[in-house]
Computed example of a mutant assay.
Amino acid sequence: MATTKEHCAVRRDVLGHVGSKWSCLVLTMLDAGPRRYSEIRRACEISQRMLSLTLRELEQDGLIGRDAEVGVYDLTPSGRSLVALVKPLIAWSDEHYAHIVESRDRYAAAMTASAISAGRDSKAM
């Protein structure tokens, strides 16, 4: 299948929704079963505005459904297939978390040292 501008735009849009940290957290939480808005908000520690936006985007993309009568959200078959792909990514993140934090700390220290050194160099001129 040829990639057209329209296909790229749709892909970029959908991946922007499903690739967000909040979408991944909400989707994996719903993998355990239907949840009320308040349950999702408490568990994810997400602002009301961001959760509403995330749920709306996921529902719009057909990844979750909302039962207005009961007041719960649940995964659709498409959402379940996406969660199957996201879970290994989350497992990878958990496995490499310590290394990533250490790398960020080393990088920050190196940038701080570089900035201090650059400041000394500019004063010497």
Rank of each mutant, 00 (worst) to 15 (best):
E6R: 12
H7Y: 12
A9G: 08
A9Y: 11
V10Y: 15
V10N: 15
V10H: 15
R11F: 14
R11E: 15
D13E: 15
V14K: 08
L15F: 09
L15P: 00
L15K: 05
G16I: 02
G16T: 01
G16E: 04
V18Q: 01
G19P: 00
W22E: 13
S23M: 10
S23F: 11
S23V: 04
V26Y: 02
V26A: 03
T28S: 11
T28Y: 14
M29A: 13
M29P: 00
M29G: 04
L30D: 00
L30I: 01
D31V: 08
G33M: 06
P34R: 10
P34E: 14
R35H: 10
R36S: 04
Y37L: 09
Y37D: 05
S38A: 13
S38M: 12
E39T: 01
I40F: 09
R41L: 14
A43L: 13
A43K: 08
A43Q: 09
E45F: 09
R49I: 04
L51W: 09
L51N: 02
L51K: 03
L51D: 01
L53R: 06
T54H: 11
T54P: 05
T54Q: 13
T54G: 08
L55K: 02
R56K: 11
R56Y: 12
L58Y: 01
L58N: 00
E59Q: 15
E59R: 15
Q60E: 15
G62P: 03
L63W: 05
L63F: 09
G65F: 12
G65K: 13
R66F: 11
D67S: 10
V70D: 03
V72K: 05
Y73N: 04
D74K: 12
D74V: 08
D74P: 04
D74M: 13
L75G: 01
T76Q: 14
T76G: 07
T76I: 09
P77V: 12
S78T: 06
L82H: 12
V83K: 03
V83P: 01
V83A: 04
A84P: 04
V86Y: 11
V86C: 05
K87T: 02
K87I: 05
P88T: 00
L89Y: 07
L89V: 04
A91Q: 12
W92T: 00
E95I: 00
Y97R: 09
A98Q: 06
A98F: 07
H99W: 13
I100Q: 01
I100N: 01
I100G: 00
V101Y: 07
R104K: 06
R104C: 05
R104A: 05
R104L: 10
D105A: 07
Y107A: 07
Y107G: 01
A109S: 07
A109F: 07
A110H: 06
A110M: 09
M111S: 03
M111C: 06
T112E: 14
A113Y: 03
A115M: 04
I116S: 02
S117L: 07
S117R: 06
S117A: 04
A118W: 07
R120A: 05
D121S: 08
D121N: 11
D121P: 01
D121W: 07
S122L: 06
S122D: 03
